[in-house]
């Protein structure tokens, strides 16, 4: 009897580890809507923005589009932020006032607030760039299911690039993570996802 319990526990642990490392919810290239119980929980966080401490709960009542990226990101981040910029400009002014786009750096060693504040407004003046300690960022990324790691960049002068998951996390007005939109989601698709969350008036 006891043996069966041990076996059961072992099976559970193995299953847990397998799901942890394979992250099955992170559907490759498909439009992954959160469904399984391994889905990231998201939740509140506090980091540093342009004017000091910024918390997710400061934006209660707004739709937040959260992206994990870095300012020396050569292609993936500019593509995604460019599409988010298009989306922002496709919204009406009223809708735009109910939306906040923010990027948390996955390269806190190189991205200070000055860099974030130079980089993000290029895409749209309303975009917020957030930094913190590597530990703070790792903890938030884990809750949102964002993964990243340093990678050597050829023999180039930049030293390294950062491999990273490229989802945009859609957080509703109640601060709840509701959807993750894959890389290369178009401006129009972002607009549709945002409008689905905005309560009709």
């Amino acid at each position: 009897m006891k043996k069966a319990y041990y076996l059961f526990a072992l099976v559970l642990i193995t299953f847990g580890l397998v799901t942890l490392f394979t992250q099955p919810w992170q559907e490759k290239s498909s439009h992954a809507v959160l469904v399984s119980n391994t889905a990231p929980t998201g939740g509140d966080f506090t980091l540093t923005g342009t004017r000091g401490k910024v918390s997710l709960h400061d934006y209660a009542g707004k739709i937040v589009l959260l992206y994990f990226g870095y300012t020396t990101c050569p292609d993936i981040c500019p593509t995604n932020l460019g599409n988010l910029s298009s989306a922002t400009r496709l919204l009406s002014e009223d809708e735009r006032n109910q939306v906040q786009v923010m990027m948390i750096t996955v390269d806190p060693e190189r991205d200070d607030q000055l860099k974030m504040d130079t980089y993000l407004p290029y895409f749209h003046p309303s975009f917020q760039g957030l930094t913190g300690t590597p530990e703070q960022i790792a903890e938030i990324a884990k809750r949102y299911g964002a993964v990243y790691q340093k990678a050597a960049l050829g023999e180039g002068a930049l030293g390294y690039s950062v491999d990273h998951s490229a989802f945009t996390y859609l957080i509703n007005a109640q601060g709840k993570l509701v959807e993750q939109l894959p890389h290369a989601t178009t401006g129009e698709e972002f607009v549709a996802a945002i409008r689905a969350q905005l309560t009709p008036k």
């Binding site: 992170q26 292609d75 993964v147 990678a151 960049l153 491999d163 998951s165 490229a166």
Partner: peptide, 14 residues
């Protein structure tokens, strides 16, 4: 360079 989607991450490689 190219990008590949691997382990849920966009990886850029020479």
């Amino acid at each position: 360079h190219t990008h590949t989607l691997d382990e849920g991450m966009m990886k850029m490689r020479q």
